[in-house]
Design a protein around this nucleic acid. Sequence first.
DNA 1: ACAAGATGCTGACATAAATCATCCAATTAC
DNA 2: GTAATTGGATGATTTATGTCAGCATCTTGT
Lengths: 230, 230
Amino acid sequence: MNNGTIKRTSEFSQALLNSFNPEPDVRTEEWFELHQFKNGQTIYRQGNTPLGVFYIKSGKVKFTRETDDGSRHIIRIGAEGDFLGYEDILLERRYSNTVEAWGDVSLFFIPRKEFMDVLDKDIKTARRFSQMLSENLLETEQRLIGFAHKPVRGRLADALLSLSNYFKKNNAPVSISLTRYELANMIGTASETVVRMLSEFRDEKLITTERKGIRILDEKGLARATEMYN
Amino acid sequence: MNNGTIKRTSEFSQALLNSFNPEPDVRTEEWFELHQFKNGQTIYRQGNTPLGVFYIKSGKVKFTRETDDGSRHIIRIGAEGDFLGYEDILLERRYSNTVEAWGDVSLFFIPRKEFMDVLDKDIKTARRFSQMLSENLLETEQRLIGFAHKPVRGRLADALLSLSNYFKKNNAPVSISLTRYELANMIGTASETVVRMLSEFRDEKLITTERKGIRILDEKGLARATEMYN
DNA sequence: ACAAGATGCTGACATAAATCATCCAATTAC
DNA sequence: GTAATTGGATGATTTATGTCAGCATCTTGT
């Protein structure tokens, strides 16, 4: 364990902390490789052996998983401050998702060994990762309940609200730019149904739909639309 | 930090390791309180402040979550060797689920502070918990895809196979004893639909349905029934 | 032992959502 | 600049599943 690695470790921890308190820390670049991806480029692919984890410095990514029958499903999206691929590293298995850039993305690459070293040395960072995992798990379970028990209308409203959270910077209302097909894939329905539901929301003045994207007008109203269970 | 706590710590780690390699370790009882629950009794309740985590020594439990509209949803089940409630402890928030005994259950209670002490002291145990969380997350994501894209028939087949895994001891075929209503709740459908699908499976000689429970006859055949996506 | 309440099952009917077929508008390719 | 492709929108129809109603069987409490 040389001095370089120790420094890197602390930088990595710093990067992690930044993910919770997003203060820019330029020094991180001195220690970790910065990679740039363009829209649609694959960051890693399901089934490949993980070489390390990524930390999103800026931009958004799309997690997809391919099922036995060959179809691909959008699982979730990742944004600035998120770490990618650490679940598979922890479990020492191949990547269980494909992650691709959604717009321009820049991320740090942390090699497997260094990542593990940090977790072994720095209890606080290890704790943070457990917390991220827990949070993710509880949220995914919540989504699961929604998928099981909400009609399409409610699931779509949920998706829009959650997406707008990811997209918004300093609470400016931000337009969500996905194709109807992608939205449909995310909530498990047909794109025609999404089109119809979006029109419904538009007619109810909850959103606007322009070519460049969907914009939420009435957050409260949309939240009300999510509340329906069977 | 006295000697007692150190011993307890190592016992706890031992209990954890047992969860992966289920060798009985009677000494654990010397260090942690053993609690007994009868069918239907609540182990902890959603919204309450967590006092610690539980480790299932024997028996099964049912995780449920209540949504805003007041309905309860079965999220998953837990069995021998599982830990309960650690996600909420890690996140320092109130319990996000209710857990109740499903049949006779005996579990160890590990107070919050001791649990955290172990995670701080014992890297290996901390790592195990991260792995459990990762595994759980990936599996829940997989279920999410199924809920989004599989018709009821496929979801039911999935549930039956997964339940039979939980229920089976030393690969004896084990009967699954849930009400149709509970099964329906788990996969997000109506109990009548479950009844019909089960009849379908019975007619196809994939399962038997007696009063005391469902028994899987043809695992391969059921697995084929899970394979259908939209 | 009996009543009362669950639980399981089946049929008839209603409905949300999928599918199929077009069409238009907007990008992208040539 | 025109053709080709992609994304968005709408209507007609079909289908899977939910809902409602009735009944039989089993379990539980007294």
